[in-house]
């Protein structure tokens, strides 16, 4: 069963008398454990699409199912609960909580969102930190680690709840080439290990080269790009 299914998805923003159709009736589906990217120029609607999949922004019309559930009409509270249970987020600016240590940042969703028991929670956090190679930095604060390390922690935080889907908005935009490659490798490794679906919104060709499916967005319409024999999308 597809992790994400969208049918005739529309998102229209209204500012005064002006209506802007950010997404114009798109259809797509994303399969479990896939590595998918949405690409397109600024303003093409890729972040809007990611926000809709992430239950952060409800569609204006159409159907959108995530993890088997229709999310088009969830209340604010229900949406928050759904995000906490099924979706992980990785942000461009890492968005770690500065007053929490690396360990506590990864622990946060299990403690403040899902209420896992103490022992089980700590074990899971250590597993995730180990998986992203940050176990030895567990007691450091975000201000004491590098950008690449922060993004590793963010990946661990996104995966710690066993999320079926991780949404990553420009995850490598603030990283140097080498670190970005390591983060992409890490996410791929995590996908293989935990069978998690990764969906990216990106401009980064390094990500596009590594994903299996790429959707190109332009003026609110979506086209699936097929991968050529050499691995490039066409």
């Amino acid at each position: 069963m597809s992790v994400v299914v969208a049918k005739q998805l529309v998102k229209t923003y209204v500012a005064g008398d002006i209506k802007v159709e950010a997404i114009r009736g798109v259809d797509f589906s994303i399969e479990p454990a896939s590595f998918v990217s949405f690409i397109g120029p600024s303003g093409s609607g890729k972040t809007t699409l990611l926000n809709m999949i992430g239950c952060l922004d409800p569609p204006t019309s159409g159907q959108l199912q995530v993890a088997g559930q229709d999310i088009t009409s969830l209340s604010r509270q229900e949406a928050a609960r759904f995000r906490g249970e099924h979706i992980g987020f990785v942000f461009q600016d890492f968005n770690l909580i500065p007053v929490l240590t690396v360990f506590e940042n990864v622990e946060y969703p299990l403690q403040m969102v899902q209420s896992w028991p103490n022992e089980k929670r700590k074990k899971r956090v250590l597993e995730m930190l180990d998986a992203v190679g940050m176990a030895d930095q567990a007691h450091k604060y975000p201000s004491q680690i590098s950008g690449g390390q922060k993004q590793r922690v963010a990946v661990a935080r996104a995966l710690v709840t066993n999320a079926k889907l991780v949404l990553a908005d420009e995850p490598t935009a603030n990283l140097d080439k080498e670190t970005a490659n390591r983060i992409i490798d890490l996410m791929k490794q995590m996908r293989d290990e935990f069978k998690t679906t990764f969906v990216f919104s990106t401009h980064d060709p390094r990500i596009v080269d590594n994903v299996e499916i790429t959707f190109a967005l332009e003026d609110g319409t979506l086209h699936r790009l097929e991968k050529s024999a050499g691995g490039d999308h066409a």
Binding site: Q77, A80, R83, G84, Y108, P109, M112
Partner: peptide, 16 residues
């Protein structure tokens, strides 16, 4: 604000 957005996005309920 940004931090509130982050914890809200990762599923922290409004009452928390």
């Amino acid at each position: 604000i940004n931090e509130i957005g982050t914890i809200s996005a990762i599923g922290t309920l409004p009452n928390k």
